[in-house]
Amino acid sequence: MTDKFISIESVSKRFPAAGGGSTTVFEDLWLSMARGEFVCIIGHSGCGKTTVLNILAGLEAPSDGAVIVDNQAIEGPSLDRAVIFQSHALLPWLTVMGNVAYAVASKWRFMNRGDLNRQAQKFIDLVGLTGAEHKRPAELSGGMKQRVGIARTLSIEPKIMLMDEPFSALDALTRGTLQDEVRRICLETGQTAFMITHDVDEAIYLADRVVLMTNGPNAVLAEIVENPLPKERQRNDVHRHPLYYGVRNHIIDFLVSRSKNFADEMAGTNYDRRHVPVVRPGTPQVSATRPASLDSTDGGQARSPMQVVADFPTSSRPSLAQHRA
């Protein structure tokens, strides 16, 4: 891979445990992302997804390993890596304009008032909040608050957007609209995005690649699912795509059973933390170590969408029932 814009290299996170010793959230975690890529990470609660995101953001330091962004190891938070928080984290004493302008003023410290407001206004307009500039967060609905959060994040024109379940607190309708907007904005501005989600449909709609994480503690990245859907997809008909349910079922199967038993599943295979298996549900060939082979452009549309192929035989995968027996 030539374009490793973000590279998580052998990162571990351990917390001191209650009775001495330590709990390992995850260790020796490797993941890289290309510039302009949209990656979603899915896993059960407590598996350490948020920790990965916080380490990427620089809000938490890894116990071991490093994160390299744009050929530089990160040391703490940066304006280049903007975070959209799950709980929007707006400052309640500032207006919508105040919240966005605060971020703008943090990035461009000597910008004059006029330019500052123009920049903030541009992004308030972009997320469709024109007219609500002088409202305070308490006067806004949940969806509008999250829009302000998005505007604040975008206004500083970051290189990377990190999103921690940004839409999980919203109703389905608002969530759909905001997904559309985030997708449009990311495509338009060429943003690199890393998003934590619990919503499989959201991941398939937004992501180029979906990273599956096993249950913690000692979580590992189980697979990277390449999204076989075309880049130009519409939310209203994405689920009609022949490959859609193949991807969806693959991810749900993982969440339902494989996420618990992944260690057993990997026993005796050539699973390598550094080269996480890449799967492309609905296409015949998949390589664990050479994702370049995925570039074969047949798209896989002609094949059965249910055909899930990895570099380990699906049939040999022990079922949950067998393991409990």
């Binding site: 890596r81 709980s87 400052l91 500083i156």
Partner: peptide, 29 residues
């Protein structure tokens, strides 16, 4: 002061003094 507000300040690379006056003071007021 809510940790997420401090995290906002951190991701925006806000300095100690600015953080004290623009985040902590209004939050603790």
């Amino acid at each position: 002061v809510r940790k997420e507000w401090l995290n906002v300040a951190r991701t925006l690379e806000v300095g100690t003094f600015r953080r004290a006056f623009t985040i902590i003071l209004p939050a603790a007021a």
